[in-house]
């Protein structure tokens, strides 16, 4: 018997997304995952940035922190440091994650902060109405979607970045890809990512129906990973990530290593209990 049925995680606020937006499925899968994992909303914090997808915390019962553009990972790191017993989930879009927030990703990954980072990737800036994002497909044939955006009216001449390969190289300990049109698998990926101790990254292909409708393109590119892939094999994972013609869906890579909390706790444990009681007077004495 789950702690709460999935629908109980809905808040009174109605999602502001356009009909047909992939983010509805992303949210629904999260309700299901929360229910399946018995997530206690009072012991969970969802941190989001700015963009269509970053409105998500408003629609799901839990503590939430809707921050500024691109700074979700540092804020989530602070939340987790303050209380390691919290379940911390970070949501954002491709612009929030890979453009303005790109500088924080390697550091969250190398620290192996025990948080789950869900990036709803629609290859476009939707909230600001159709500008190029770091994952917008290019004229050279890489990526998905329109090659002409409002900010690349003469053609998208920049190549998109490869989020999966990037995450692997940065040292993320869990890397997966899902698709909003495959909600059951998405729920399973959330479950695995939230259970994973360490920095979990999920790229969710979540098309924008208004400014970059890519359902058909993605439907043609996806191949679910079914048993034949060993997610602990880094080289195999890298090969999948570098296959830019195919969107492999599933857990690409997973490995256990000490989390940031583990590492900080080991430092705290080293200071003996007497010292940890923290006598400021003893410290004052060193200034005499």
């Amino acid at each position: 018997m789950p702690f709460m049925p999935a629908k109980e995680y809905k808040t009174e606020a109605k999602p502001i997304w356009c009909p047909g937006c992939g983010d509805f499925a992303v949210l629904a899968a999260m309700y299901n995952s929360f229910s399946e994992l018995d997530i206690d909303p009072t012991k969970t914090v969802i941190v989001s940035g700015i963009g269509c997808s970053s409105r998500l915390p408003v629609f799901i019962k839990s503590y939430g922190f809707h921050t500024v553009h691109g700074r979700t990972l540092p804020v989530a790191t602070g939340v987790k440091m303050a209380n390691p017993e919290l379940t911390v989930i970070v949501t954002g879009g491709d612009g929030d994650a890979f453009a303005i927030g790109g500088g924080h990703i390697p550091h969250a990954a190398r620290r192996n902060v025990d948080i789950t980072y869900i990036v709803m990737d629609n290859f476009i800036y939707g909230l600001t109405k159709g500008q190029t994002s770091p994952t917008t497909g290019s004229q050279s044939g890489l990526g998905h979607g329109f090659k002409l955006t409002t900010t690349s009216p003469h053609g998208q001449y920049e190549d998109p970045l490869n989020p999966m390969a990037m995450m692997l190289v940065y040292g993320a300990s869990f890397v997966a890809r899902g698709y909003s049109s495959k909600p059951k698998q998405l729920t399973q990926l959330y479950n695995a990512a939230i259970r994973h101790r360490g920095f979990s990254f999920i790229q969710v292909l979540s098309p924008c129906v208004v400014f970059n409708k890519t359902y058909d393109e993605i439907d043609a590119a996806i191949i679910p990973l079914e048993g034949q892939h060993d997610p602990t094999d880094f080289k195999a994972a890298m090969n999948l990530a570098l296959d830019t013609q195919t969107e492999h869906l599933g857990i690409i890579y997973q490995n256990e290593k000490p989390t940031l909390d583990d590492r900080i706790e080991s430092i705290l444990a080293k200071s003996n209990p007497e010292k940890r009681a923290g006598d400021l007077k003893k410290i004052f004495a060193s200034y005499k």
Partner: peptide, 9 residues
């Protein structure tokens, strides 16, 4: 950002 997260928590 980290400070705000920690204080929020």
């Amino acid at each position: 950002g980290m400070v705000l997260g920690a204080s929020y928590a």
